[in-house]
Design a protein around this nucleic acid. Sequence first.
DNA 1: ATGAAAGCGCTAACAA
DNA 2: TTGTTAGCGCTTTCAT
Lengths: 347, 347
Amino acid sequence: MAEKVTSLQVAQLAGVSQSAVSRVFTPGASVSKKTEEKVRKAAAELGYRPNVLARAMVSGKSRIIGLVVGYLDNYFYPEALEKLSNALQEKGYHVLIFMASRTAGNIEDVMAEILDYQVDGVILASVAMSSEIATRCQQAGVPVVLFNRSQDIEGITSVTSDNFVGGRKVAEFLLAGGHERIGYIAGWQGASTQRDREAGFRAGLSEGGQSLFAHEIGDFHTETARAAARRMFDVAPDMRPDAVLVANDHMALAVMDVIRFELGLRVPEDVSVVGYDDVPPAAWPAYNLTTIRQRANLMVAETVTALLEHIDTPATAKSRKVAIDGPLVVRTSARLPKGWNPQRTET
Amino acid sequence: MAEKVTSLQVAQLAGVSQSAVSRVFTPGASVSKKTEEKVRKAAAELGYRPNVLARAMVSGKSRIIGLVVGYLDNYFYPEALEKLSNALQEKGYHVLIFMASRTAGNIEDVMAEILDYQVDGVILASVAMSSEIATRCQQAGVPVVLFNRSQDIEGITSVTSDNFVGGRKVAEFLLAGGHERIGYIAGWQGASTQRDREAGFRAGLSEGGQSLFAHEIGDFHTETARAAARRMFDVAPDMRPDAVLVANDHMALAVMDVIRFELGLRVPEDVSVVGYDDVPPAAWPAYNLTTIRQRANLMVAETVTALLEHIDTPATAKSRKVAIDGPLVVRTSARLPKGWNPQRTET
DNA sequence: ATGAAAGCGCTAACAA
DNA sequence: TTGTTAGCGCTTTCAT
């Protein structure tokens, strides 16, 4: 059982002062080559490592980022979490998880816990009440960035894909494919992602001289989405949409299941289905879902950059709304426009 | 911007000593009703909350649990992570994520980072070199439990499903179904889960008078598993296995894709496929994968209990290997034994 | 460049 | 039950 090694012990072994040891481990402090050498040697010998918590207390920087997340069943999030954590780790930060799913409704608790840990920054992903939490963090002086959410609050940085443009792209694609009864299955109305995707979709439809033929709400939940799909498609053939955009892949896959296995319809011959996110299962041959890709790598990079900027230079860092364009990944779940060039979008 | 409120300020407002404030926020300390009241009132007024980091430094307990995880693309892990985090949160702990995927091979770095944060305990899930990390933590006096991994190291607690029994169950089921050429696609050989599942499977087969007809290695990776499936099934019909156990669902779904969409075979008419884990996609109608369920809730509960035990009473807590039995969830990807009672296993 | 000294915000003896 | 007094391990002036 390794004993706890303190900077003082290292100092004694190295024959220098305790502050000298501290300086060696503080980037940008002034130490002579010789001292540094002695200290590093002693530190290595003793297996010394600075105590992050003690450092945090005096410096006020914990090198901990709070990640508040509601649920992980949308497979876009595990991926994002992994990348986020990796990116932050590279910058010397670590991610402390705050699950807000169960605690939902109790902002106070979540806030209290976050502030207790003196996190240097907070990333909010897939949470209800994200705007309230964001505002509260802001007030407490903790830098925040919203990941995959955008609120109309002044001065809060957010990173999303360009949901409006994405929605419009799908509309154009479906219109070009000759669809004439186009439906939409919405996500949770409180989410900006949902609202923007729908708005873009409607805009694209209307630019093409059409409007929504059917509309149901799936709330980003599998079961709710299945019910929505039944309401939309279990109807007389001439009342049935010939295409549908589902607000995210998580629901779109469930919708496809209902359409194919419950109702016995063919995709895309009877109904074209398009999703949003491009989660890994969308590419599985059993689905082959045409969808808008959210570029997780870029979104993560932007998020990390923005957050660190707010942490490092709170004075000059200005908030911004980053919206990253994502390509339409054409697979086989939606009928292709005539003469569509089947150039493979890379999977 | 909320100012930082210290216990001293609260003490002054309440007209008591600073230690009195500390005691009010320390469960099990002795304070009079009156003092407590005054302090709580002052604290509420100022919005005071104890600083976890400062507390950690003096008490030596950070209330942070390090979760070391290799990757999140096996969908058993997001689920486990969510449940783990929730359970720990309920006990007043929070999860600090350490991604070991990229850093793989560099144990020193991972160890250093973990110890830097003075975590109260560590959970190792889905990591290579878990046994080395576990040993090192042990040496450093940090309680560890292995989640979904088991090593033969003396004195390290682990929680897994009963992989041997699970493997055997599948063998019995396949044998009862009349299969005569039974294959196995293995996971990464370094994982105890893989080894135990295979051993149980082989044992079950041999108890039924058969042995493995084919064996390939999928390494728990989608692409490797696909290649393994091709080697196993893209052969003359009489050399082709009529059933296969794949070491986890993540690979099993990919294997099904290859069998059905690349090779044009039918599941289960031509080949029965069984997986392990019962991840959510296994239940999707497009797959309907027969599989062994890992009972995440139970595994998480055991993990948390064991870890807290080691943290709270390091002296008396003894290490153990917990193996939780999981049911065979019968769906449609494997031919049923004659007269099999199609009583629905709950999904 | 280096050492001495003063805390960061809190808990834990120790007295009273 | 309370207040007083030491630190926890570190960073950061301030002198030197």
